[in-house]
């Protein structure tokens, strides 16, 4: 599966016979002189679906306007006095969280104006505009393999590499980690390191034989 990351790179991942649950969601920071702002991307409408699933949506004050052909939506949550601001394009959405209520759309437009946003089926790309003095940082890609494990992809170097030599597998070097949760449940995760990515696979069920197979065959690259 080939996907475009918000900073314009290409992410390739192959989970073998297990299908991906969804398209990739990303988390990244936009850093400028004024500080850092966290942004998320996902499939268009995903944030609303999640909020509906969690039962939060009904208490939101929802506002919507149009901006350069895209929808701008704000979900204002009176419970925690915060607002989620969404840019919804034809394929994907970009959203960020702003503290406070009655946040004017102008604030969000001001943040988005630093980027040239291009939405395509492979992914939405936020290219910093010339002179905007903003850069993207701390990219994290999230997905899951249906019923087997969750996947977190970091660019190489973003996370420390575990000590010792890992097991040589198809996707690079592999380390396995078992942790026991407070309730006695076994949490099994695997860290896969190669030249371009550090990937964390977290098993849904520690004893699932499919997880061991996925950890040995999973390949992932960022270019």
């Amino acid at each position: 599966m080939l996907a475009r990351t918000p900073d314009g790179r290409t992410l390739t991942a192959d989970g073998g016979p297990q299908p991906f649950t969804m398209g990739w969601s990303y988390l990244f920071w936009a850093r400028s002189d004024k500080g850092a702002q966290r942004f998320h991307t996902g499939a268009a409408g995903a944030r609303e679906l999640i909020a509906r699933h969690l039962g939060e949506y009904d208490r939101f004050t929802v506002r919507e306007v149009s901006w350069n052909g895209a929808r701008l939506v704000s979900h204002e949550d009176p419970e925690n006095a915060g607002t989620t601001m969404l840019w919804i394009g034809p394929h994907h959405e970009v959203y960020t969280f702003v503290q406070g209520t009655n946040v004017p759309f102008e604030l969000f437009i001001g943040e988005l104006a630093a980027f040239d946003i291009r939405d395509a089926p492979e992914g939405v790309v936020l290219a910093p505009r010339l002179g905007a003095r903003v850069r993207l940082d701390g990219l994290l890609a999230v997905n899951s393999l249906e019923g087997v494990c969750s996947i977190q992809v970091n660019p190489a170097g973003a996370l420390p590499t575990p000590g010792g030599a890992g097991k040589r597998v198809r996707g690079g070097a592999l380390w396995k980690r078992d942790e026991r949760a407070d309730d006695g449940r076994l949490l099994r995760s695997a860290i896969l390191v190669n030249t371009s990515t550090t990937t964390i696979l977290t098993a849904r069920d520690a004893d699932d034989p499919r997880f061991a197979a996925v950890a040995d065959s999973f390949t992932c690259g960022l270019s």
């Binding site: 506002r63 306007v65 901006w67 704000s74 004017p104 759309f105 437009i109």
Partner: peptide, 27 residues
Amino acid sequence: VGATPSLVKYAPDGAEEWRRVVGSDPD
């Protein structure tokens, strides 16, 4: 205006007083 719908208020002499993006009917 950049985003629609926007509300712009003009003084009687035609000078713009303010402009706001209108996200909801209560707004």
